[in-house]
């Protein structure tokens, strides 16, 4: 079965990983801009990173038949210095105009500070002003519930937000209902220790249904698995779910969400 990996940080993965994903049936990936494991010392570091996501990584995945789409944004961990963040945000329109860029992401909160919130407001303003898709990172561990609620509060207060075009990622058992009840797309992240396991993701598919649900590996430079989607597929089969439901989760839902981007030009294999 073909699948789409909607959230993976290819820049942090080896070419062997890309090859393994292609062999497993991956036909397209989404790569949000994120924290590379260190704070960048100047705005040029971001410029080069955005070029990497839009020029170099698409070539690496194309060598194995995987189509690469990127998201442009400033992650919450580097959003605390608001004047510096503004310099980075000023770079984004140039890259958002590139053909395989899906929207603004991943943006969000980390420690839920006032400065993170100030930067986030400016990123949302940029996205809404350009009618871009939005991808939100919700915080880790003990901050997740608080940060998710803050993001929902922020979006609820803005009448311009089209909830069909917003993906709130890294949901877990205690936040998925909040996100889905308000009409957003919810993302589940398959991580070995933090976030959710394949079995828990299947639990949430069973409890909440497949509508507006995306499941991803979010594989990056930390403990993570670029083939985690295949583990989800195996867990769903083990639990007796039909192939049509599995295909919906790992292929049709990502396509449905991504197709809302006016620049999305992809002919999926059947």
């Amino acid at each position: 079965m073909y699948f789409i990996e909607p959230h993976i940080h290819i820049a942090s993965r080896t070419t062997d990983d890309i090859q393994a994903m292609a062999r497993a049936g991956c036909v397209a990936v989404g790569e949000p801009a994120f924290w590379m494991g260190y704070d960048r010392s100047n705005v040029g570091g971001f410029y080069d990173y955005f070029r990497q996501l839009t020029e170099w990584e698409p070539k690496r995945t194309a060598n194995y038949g995987i189509r690469h789409f990127a998201w442009m944004g400033l992650n919450a961990k580097e959003a605390e210095n608001v004047p510096f963040a503004r310099e980075v945000i000023a770079l984004l329109p140039e890259f958002l105009d590139k053909p395989d860029v899906l929207g603004v992401g991943e943006i969000g909160l980390h420690k839920c500070t006032k400065n993170e919130l100030a930067t986030l407001r400016e990123l949302i303003e940029l996205a809404l002003g350009r009618d871009e898709l939005l991808l939100f990172h919700t915080p880790h561990l003990e901050h997740k519930l608080m940060g998710t609620r803050m993001i929902l509060d922020l979006l609820r207060a803005d009448s311009r937000v089209n909830r069909d075009r917003v993906w709130i990622d890294h949901c877990e058992e205690h936040t998925i209902r909040l996100v889905r009840d308000e009409g957003y797309w919810a993302g589940l992240t398959l991580y070995p220790t933090t976030k959710v396991t394949p079995e828990r993701a299947v639990d949430m598919i069973e409890i909440y249904g497949p509508e507006r649900l995306l499941v991803t590996s979010s594989a990056d430079w930390g403990p993570s698995d670029p083939l985690a989607i295949t583990a989800l597929m195996a867990a769903m089969r083990r639990r007796g779910h039909e192939e049509s439901l599995i295909r919906r989760i790992v292929y049709e839902n990502p396509l449905t969400f991504m197709r809302q981007c006016r620049r999305f030009d992809f002919t999926p294999p059947q």
Binding site: C112, L117, R121, L141, E142, H143, K144, L145, M146, R149, M150, D153, L154, R156, A157, E172, E173, H174, R200, D203
Partner: peptide, 19 residues
């Protein structure tokens, strides 16, 4: 699972709300 998650979550401080 939800209740264990809540046990490991910081309480939401409405003063931090963007609203």
């Amino acid at each position: 699972a939800v209740r264990v998650q809540l046990e490991f979550s910081l309480p939401y401080d409405s003063n931090l709300s963007p609203l």
